[in-house]
Write a protein that binds this DNA or RNA. Structure first.
Lengths: 348, 348
DNA sequence: TTGTAGGCGTTATCAC
DNA sequence: GTGATAACGCCTACAA
């Protein structure tokens, strides 16, 4: 008795057109269609055109899951950021999406809420989804995450930071802190205060503090413990921190803020308590967000191009995925933008 | 001669563990493993535990593409927004991601750059990627997009807006405009100006204008053509618009801005040209962004909870996907936040 | 250069 | 309840 292959009812729900449909319409094999559409192997020019035209006419769209399964690679790139509420990350992701979109990739986005365990969970999910590359924020990630990436051989780039152990596209945050401190030191300031976002959640913040400390040290000064305040990244927290700083002993004459948001809060507090900025107090931020030109006085700050982070990270990942050579270190330049919130200290 | 099935070298690259591995280790079939892990059919309780334990031990992660291909549905949800630079959308997407993430879905994000063709292109890509649901911004989309969604039977929700023809989760933008106008009318204002984002790109903006017009009309007033200025959504544009408004004839005593960003620009211009706010001029915004509490004076505005848009949209899509009943209309309530930039007009 | 068909990892159908 | 295996849509090794 012949062992026959039992037929079973087809399971498909979507009636989307497939390579088979295109192949039939073009009178060629599915292999040829696939080859044409992926541009891999050699196909006669006229055949190529015919297939391409028919595919377009029929409105053929490749089934990404099937393609990913068969080819063992996908046209998606993942990114996990702490929060989209932080505009720096939103802008960076936006630029990343734009660039990879142009290259035919789609973006899978996860958020970590500043938690390494959540971040790991998100990355696991993205890997299960078959991402071809991954962008993260900062260099501080769960060891398990790094192991996973290593094991799965997924191109990774750490954004916004500098990393000695992994590919990165970032700002030299140490230099950023140093630049700001040097500028204020050159103006004659000697008593410094600093308001930063939580270093526990941000190696960028920690680096900026290091930069400030280093600059001060070179001039024989230092940042006193009670003059360094860590706060959540909100305007109101910047205001609270400034209040604490002004009520403390030996008021600083210059306050460097880890971000513009904190600086705006600090500035608001100064205005409310009648402290003259920049006469009695200089305030500087970091990021140069849109508002910073419109505070009163306008904010002195460092310009950090978040969109460059996203765009360069995209370039890096695409190059890695496509096997093109690319540098695994990229520092996005930053600029000091002097506006109205900084000046020489009055008592000089 | 027997027709033998030709064996071929396996093609797999990833050495990730699969259902087959779990099945082997547990001494059961792949079908059982699948059943256990998806909780569909009935499996003996002890067997369930054994399989689950082994899967965990082996660190099994389902291959999303394979699963999507076999089951014809995926655990991904798509969103296409105009831009992540607009914080409203960033916050909405953030909330969406959070909620769907909790439900085991991952987010595919596209950006349209306020262009319907680009939007359609992004949606096509997301559909090819097998999204189970889709969130868009506003109700104005390419007819081809609506057809596509209809044909593919993908649950859709239009965010931030009200839509008579499709499911939505949004603000009643007409009511928002009316509320603000009524408030200023009640204060005694009669000469109104309006600065809005481009209506061409935003049905939300158009609705807000309608609301303002409606409220004025009920009191026998109207918004003069030259007192309605459309601008790109930037602080500096708000400032430019305010300058134009103040240099025009018959200055308004109240200016309603389509967004806080524009209002902040308007406020900056008033300050620079020595116009007393709210003494000589009332200014109001819409959105209540973080910065609006810190302008000087603090901005009167409408509070629009963008995160609610994202969260509710997620709920809607998840319900649709899982076949649960859910209302296809949801209006997120808004509140008038009276702060310091509005007052009775001086000449009353 | 083009066609044939096995394999990608899961799910779901059918038989037991 | 459980196992065997066709089907999902595409890619690609191999044959022609």
């Amino acid at each position: 008795m012949t062992k026959e292959t039992k037929k079973r009812a087809p399971r498909r729900k979507s009636n989307a057109i497939s390579v088979a449909d295109v192949a039939r319409a073009a009178g060629v094999s599915t292999a040829t269609v696939s080859r044409v559409l992926n541009g891999n192997a050699k196909v006669a020019a006229d055949l190529q055109n015919r297939v391409r035209d028919i595919a377009r006419e029929l409105g053929y769209t490749p089934h990404a899951a099937a393609r990913a399964l068969a080819s063992q690679r996908s046209k998606t790139i993942g990114a996990v950021i702490p929060s989209l509420e932080n505009q720096n990350f939103a802008i960076g992701v936006f630029a990343l999406q734009k660039r990879i979109g142009e290259a035919g990739y789609t973006l899978l986005l996860g958020c970590s809420y500043y938690d390494q365990e959540d971040e790991l969970k998100q990355v696991r999910a993205l890997i299960a989804d078959g991402i071809a590359g991954l962008m993260l924020v900062g260099r501080s990630h769960s060891p398990a995450l790094y192991e996973l990436i290593e094991k799965e051989q997924i191109p990774l780039v750490n954004g916004w930071t500098v990393d000695h152990d992994h590919p990165y596209v970032g700002f030299d945050n140490v230099a950023v802190g140093r630049r700001l401190a040097d500028y204020l030191l050159d103006l004659g300031h000697t008593r410094f205060g600093m308001i930063t976002q939580m270093t526990q959640h941000s190696d960028r913040a920690a680096d900026r503090i290091s930069g400030v400390r280093a600059a001060l040290q070179l001039r024989g000064l230092q940042l006193r413990h009670e003059h360094l305040i860590e706060m959540p990244h909100k305007i109101i927290e910047g205001q609270m921190a400034m209040k604490a700083l002004m009520n403390g002993s030996e008021r600083p004459t210059a306050v460097i803020c880890g971000t513009d948001l904190l600086a705006i809060g600090a500035l608001a507090e100064a205005r409310e308590s009648g402290i003259d900025v920049p006469g009695d107090l200089s305030i500087a931020g970091i990021n140069d967000i849109e508002f910073s030109s419109f505070t009163s006085p306008p904010l002195t700050t460092m310009r950090l191009a978040a969109d460059e982070i996203g765009a360069r990270s995209a370039e890096y990942l695409l190059a890695r995925i496509e096997g093109r050579p690319v540098s695994s270190q990229y520092i996005v330049p930053t600029d000091l933008i002097v506006r109205g919130t900084t000046a020489r200290p009055r008592n000089i």
